[in-house]
């Protein structure tokens, strides 16, 4: 097989993509869980997180010398935090402006979809207008080098940072949904919103909080993405579509499914690309999606709206 000679290297870069997909996919899956709605504007939440993190680190990091040690860790933390906050804020406003008025009117589902597309177009282009349309590199927060090697494959600092940050957030989210009162509310609304409201769950608040949680994760992913690649007004589109694919692949509404789908998609994409040219990357991703859905119409782990994790 074409990928055998660099299997582990490809797997590692695939996992790196996959963690980011998983973080974004969770935003889609959480919102889908409570609203049965594809939040098309989530990719712009991701993008705004990238810009938020960029602003934060540009303000504090001297771009002429690369920080190291504890300083690097602090800067990355700062970027993730600000990116997440900005993402959460944008997601909050998005829900208030583009979705809540429609929900009040019990509007048809396609109206939500159009509203989402509209909000997405608006956010992409206003970001392009305000911040220019060129790719903006993030200042170096650490020296990206080889940290250690697994089966002969080099593991770089970028991978370590993304993996640690993503894993921490994923575990945190999993516990949040499984254990806390808020998580209980989210699950209740996902199972049956009307009954949940009869049981005293404030649906509006839970939906708002769900958007914010998805936005926090998406925004953090945006910063991590921008740290490795660049920040650009349209950076959300491709990862957004892929992450949504990942969410559906794992079974939409299913939190662990989104993580599994994200990691799987990242790895398979990278392994597959080694067999053909990289131009076929998206065909591989969508091809897998179509194949999986044909044989498992509700995704790999199935829809599990509202179960604990």
């Amino acid at each position: 097989m074409c990928f055998t000679h660099s299997f582990w290297q490809l797997t590692i870069s695939g996992l790196s993509d996959g963690f980011l997909y998983a973080l974004i996919a969770l935003g889609y899956t959480l919102v889908y869980g409570v609203l049965q709605l594809i939040n098309f504007a989530h990719s712009e939440v991701f993008m705004s997180g990238g810009f938020g993190g960029l602003f934060a680190v540009q303000a504090v990091v001297d771009s002429n010398k690369t920080p190291h040690g504890v300083a690097s860790v602090m800067y990355v933390l700062l970027g993730v935090l600000v990116g997440a906050l900005v993402g959460g804020a944008v997601a909050f406003v998005l829900e208030r402006v583009a979705y809540r008025p429609l929900r009040r009117r019990n509007a048809p589902k396609l109206a939500f979809l159009i509203s989402a597309i509209g909000a997405s177009l608006f956010l992409v282009n206003i970001a392009g207008k305000e911040f220019g349309r060129l790719a903006i590199p993030m200042p170096n927060l650490y020296t990206n080098g080889n940290v250690f090697s697994v089966f002969g494959a080099q593991v770089q600092t970028n991978f370590v940072v993304i993996a640690i940050a993503a894993a921490l957030m994923l575990i945190f989210l999993d516990r949040l949904v499984a254990k806390t009162r808020l998580g209980q509310g989210i699950r209740a609304v996902a199972q049956d919103a009307d009954t949940a409201s009869l049981m005293g769950v404030n649906i509006d608040r839970v939906i708002s909080q769900t958007f914010v949680i998805g936005g926090l994760l998406g925004g953090a992913a945006g910063f991590l993405f921008g740290m490795v690649f660049n920040v650009q007004y349209n950076m959300g589109f491709t990862p957004g579509v892929k992450a949504f694919t990942a969410a559906v692949l794992g079974g939409i509404g299913n939190i662990r499914g989104a993580v599994l789908g994200g990691l799987l998609l990242g790895v398979v994409e990278n392994l597959g690309v080694s067999c053909v040219q990289s131009a076929w990357r998206d065909v591989i991703a969508f091809g897998i999606l179509v194949l999986v859905l044909l044989f498992r119409p509700t995704g790999l782990l199935g829809e599990r709206l509202g179960r604990s994790a």
Binding site: V97, A98, P101, L102, R105, A107, P108, A111, F112, I114, S115, I117, G118, A119, S120, L121, F122, L123, V124, N125, I126, G128, K129, R133
Partner: peptide, 23 residues
Amino acid sequence: VAPQDRFIYFGALLVVMMIFRPQ
């Protein structure tokens, strides 16, 4: 307006339209 900014208005129009007249 600048050609690349047109979709800002387009997007805003869609959201406003869906809020006030989803049908």
